[in-house]
Amino acid sequence: MTTPAITVTHLTRRFGDFVAVDDVSFDVQQGEIFGFLGANGAGKSTTIRMLCGLLRPTSGTATVGGVDVGRDPEAVKLRIGYMSQKFSLYEALTVDQNIRFFGGVYGLEGERFARRRAFALDMAGLVGREKSLTRELAGGWRQRLALGCAILHEPPIVFLDEPTGGVDPVSRRQFWRLIDHLSQQGTTVLVTTHYLDEAEHCHRIAVMNAGKLAALGTTRELKQVFEGRPIMEVQAPSAVVAMRALDAMPEVEKTSLFGTAVHAVLRSHQTTAERVTRQLLTAGVVATSVMPVEPSLEDVFLDLVERTSA
């Protein structure tokens, strides 16, 4: 068993009376893609900023790449790459000038810089467009260039703070392919997102809610909260009316809206689809379809948020 790339123990950060991150502990293994899931303001970014050495923890410790973040934030910066949702490139500079700037800031020189520059250009798919202004690039390219600039110095650990915000689905897919690739080469990736489909790419997921770690595990492990609580997907002409009827049934633990359908969490496997259909009819709701479904990450997320907020 190798030592973890990131170890977080009882990490806490307060801003005045507000506890942004509340006693959070977890490990991230080397080469792992570790997803951070949570609503806005759940404490994801604050946690990442502490791990990057930008923000001092109020209490608790975090070790990143073998360095205690609270003690030596500068040393951490050599071992990590960071990219945020803002794609922090200089828009008035060309592709090449951006790479040169970040190369200079990271202290890359000579042959190593040339090699990494070629890598970044290739990765972003911008070979031949070195002289283009960054502000003229489409979102996907800009984002891949930002990633390239963030990992110019070949950091063993990469933090991505909502890296795919505002980017089209095709680019997002391409971006995730890059992340998979990094992970295969042994880079540890810690990524925050609120796209639940993206979370499926992660090896393990930590769900944060109101500053606390609400759950942690693989997608499959997380879905086990629905062990013994089957989910029934109900389609009806009026989802809202159907939802109200379902909520009135003693067999139903809770409901939530999924697009035009309603997901009803049942209290046991005893309750069949036919039974639900019948009950709905009694309540005057004609369901067009009622069938059991596998819990999705969204079900898990909503369930966790609801339970930890209560």
Binding site: L54, L78, I80, G81, M83, S88, L89, Y90, V105, A150
Partner: peptide, 9 residues
């Protein structure tokens, strides 16, 4: 971009 630079050593 400031945040990005601050992340750099």
């Amino acid at each position: 971009t400031m945040e990005q630079v601050r992340m750099a050593p």
